[in-house]
Design a protein around this nucleic acid. Sequence first.
DNA 1: CTGAATTTTCAGGAAAAAATGAAAATACTA
DNA 2: TAGTATTTTCATTTTTTCCTGAAAATTCAG
Lengths: 195, 195
Amino acid sequence: MKLTGYQQNFILHFGEMGSRWGINRTVGQLYALLFISEDPVNADQMAEGLSMSRSNVSMGLKELQSWQLVKLQHIPGDRKDYFKAPDDIWLIFQTLAEQRRQREIDPTITMLRGALLEPVPVSAPDDPDRYARQRMGDMLELIEMLTGWFAEVQQLDRSTLEKLMRLGGGVRRVLDVSHKFRRDGVVEADKTGEG
Amino acid sequence: MKLTGYQQNFILHFGEMGSRWGINRTVGQLYALLFISEDPVNADQMAEGLSMSRSNVSMGLKELQSWQLVKLQHIPGDRKDYFKAPDDIWLIFQTLAEQRRQREIDPTITMLRGALLEPVPVSAPDDPDRYARQRMGDMLELIEMLTGWFAEVQQLDRSTLEKLMRLGGGVRRVLDVSHKFRRDGVVEADKTGEG
DNA sequence: CTGAATTTTCAGGAAAAAATGAAAATACTA
DNA sequence: TAGTATTTTCATTTTTTCCTGAAAATTCAG
């Protein structure tokens, strides 16, 4: 597994960014390598190409598999496991976003719901947790709105999604007009009229 | 600075999640404390309430200020610095998203642009970097589409934004109809018609 | 200016995370 | 099923990150 300087540059960058992305250098480098490799790669090749121990590759691959970011393949006549990143970069992005939601947001939603479910002792006017409760409620509301939106948008087909993206801020104009066509009251007419 | 069990629960959670969010425990706890505190808090109070050293608080606050997530205030007759999280939780979210973009995505955009600018040696059919170039181009295209979209949507006023969120996947229906009103060719008519 | 109050810096120790090599486990072939 | 190829596990070492206390720097009242 020989890597060109061009490829190494990309791989090193992903390794360094790893810490900011909540993954370690190894995992970042492994994924970068898979991402730019047209053919599937086996663990020995990765260890050699990235100059790291075989066991480190094994742990890194395990991590990547738990993120569902790699596909396992087999090559006829070869007993080794070969790995590949999905061809579809949109799919990679969606998987990444979905996994980060599960790891970074869901636990907080659970905590907030639990805390807000606790009954207020006597709802005394001097409740020391009054403000905390309110803030936690605000936070939960925002997170639920955002994650709910994301979940729905994730269902959209590729072309609709790209259309929405390219529309950008122009979505405001479309939204302004949309109340004329609403069917089920989801859309509220906007009377602020700054357009 | 006395904290109730209710408040401590929230603060501890943020501390533990910190590592997943790319901040350390201290910073997570500090922000959680500020977030649920109605009145501004000074550094000594934080150190006491969170049982950590005064110097640790100082470093944590420096970090939070670099994220522009705290507001500095002064209380008449008191020389200490007091800190507060913004009241507006939408603003907090936007700041967070903006800062993460700068730290986690912008460096990669820069790297990709630089790499893709490099001229292909002789465009030989056996260019070993052919596939890597293509993949990096695909990645840059997706990232630019997403960040560009995000930048535009960030400009929208609060009520339009909430409207878009609550619309969720229903945006497809609105998009379908929008081509009737397009002004500048950004919107492509969709003939797949699965509605 | 002086000195007290307050905040910041930073070297060094503590804790956490990552990486390694050896051994164990697993999977497969003959 | 014996033997080999391959992968995984895990105790240990290495590296990185975090936290602290002491000292330095800054701010401000008198």
